[in-house]
């Protein structure tokens, strides 16, 4: 799709969408692409993980079951802590979101892999869905009283009048910041890795050791970022849900 001077091996090449199975429905190109392939991997791996983990369901868990339980309890704890007991009905959604992003980030770190969370359209779609869903939940639970979310609690009237538009704006900007954070983190990390790795080749065996060590370190950093960004995305979703459920 985009042309690069380095003949398809520039730092941006890894983000290119490649059609694997062309599909066209009603004028829309919904081809099965490398992005869809890695989403499939994520779904299949998650399914395998939970199928394998819950096959025997022992009182004392094995490694796989312990992993699945840890993920479950981590996200369940996060949802409960941030949204209370009423928020637990959204736990499967938050858990799905967390796993989808986590597996997308982790799978993308493998050589030659594609990172679907590095595409703004994917992160924006998830963020917008959350924004719309949270707003609907807020209005469904509180009606017009939901607007009191924009009035800071305990603020005098004069300050509240100034702050309310700011709060409203920050509410509207939520999907933007939510989607950009994940997208930018993934994009920057992968570009950085690719650029540094390119230096290894161009600097040769002796001086290439320096970027090699850097890539080594940045890879660990990116593994951390992959987990942290999945956590942050899920955590912010919980905080937004809490606003909609409890108002402040």
């Amino acid at each position: 799709m985009a042309e690069h001077a380095e003949g398809g091996h520039g730092p941006m090449h890894q983000f290119e969408i490649q059609q694997l199975i062309p599909i066209k429905v009603g004028g829309y190109d919904i081809s099965y692409t490398n992005s869809a392939l890695f989403m499939t991997f994520a779904v299949v791996l998650t399914a395998l993980l939970f199928w394998g983990a819950t096959r025997h369901r022992t009182m004392v868990p094995g490694r796989l079951q312990a992993t699945a339980e840890m993920l479950y309890e981590f996200v369940a704890g996060m949802v409960k802590e941030n949204t209370g007991q009423e928020g637990m009905k959204y736990f499967p959604f938050v858990f799905t979101l967390f796993l989808f992003i986590l597996f997308g980030n982790f799978l993308g770190l493998m050589p030659y892999a594609f990172t679907y969370t590095s595409h703004i359209i994917v992160t924006a779609a998830m963020a917008l869905f959350i924004f719309v869903a949270v707003t609907i939940i807020g209005f469904a639970r509180h009606g017009l009283h939901f607007f009191s979310l924009f009035v800071p609690p305990g603020a005098p009237l004069g300050i509240a009048i100034i702050l309310a538009p700011l709060e409203f704006f920050s509410y509207l900007i939520r999907p933007v910041s939510l989607s950009l954070r994940l997208f930018a983190n993934m994009l920057a990390g992968h570009v950085l890795l690719k650029v540094l790795a390119g230096f290894i080749i161009s600097l040769g065996v002796v001086f290439g050791a320096v970027p090699f060590i850097a890539v080594f370190g940045v890879t660990f950093l990116e593994i951390m970022v992959a987990a942290i960004q999945a956590y942050v995305f899920a955590l912010l979703t919980c905080i937004y849900l809490n606003d909609a459920i409890h108002l402040h």
Partner: peptide
């Protein structure tokens, strides 16, 4: 940047 190429948006959204 491939991220801002709208020709792939429909496919990505659908599979997402």
């Amino acid at each position: 940047m491939p991220q801002f190429d709208p020709s792939s948006f429909a496919s990505q959204l659908f599979w997402l």
